[in-house]
Amino acid sequence: MIDREQVLHVARLSRLRLTEEEVDTLTGELSSVLDHVDKLAEVDIEGVEPTSHVVPLENVLRDDVPVPSLDRDVALSQAPDPHDGAFRVPSPQAEA
């Protein structure tokens, strides 16, 4: 079970502003998602190494050789509010 406080906490961490109704809905929905995932707890994992990746690969590394970067215009083309070559965003302080 997940309670309202936990929903609000996660919302704050994600900088989401939720209405009262959304909090109620999410409290129920997230709880059922967690219950579903909780089924995994029934599996016996005694002696099983933690899996960090499902593909049996290791040491996929890249040589330290530069490749061309994006043109800045291209990089900024999806930015809603570019300014002086930078991505301008609302101050993180302003929403706190």
Partner: peptide, 12 residues
Amino acid sequence: RIKGSDASLVDF
């Protein structure tokens, strides 16, 4: 400074 600023410019 971060306090009182109205926007942030991000350089990646």
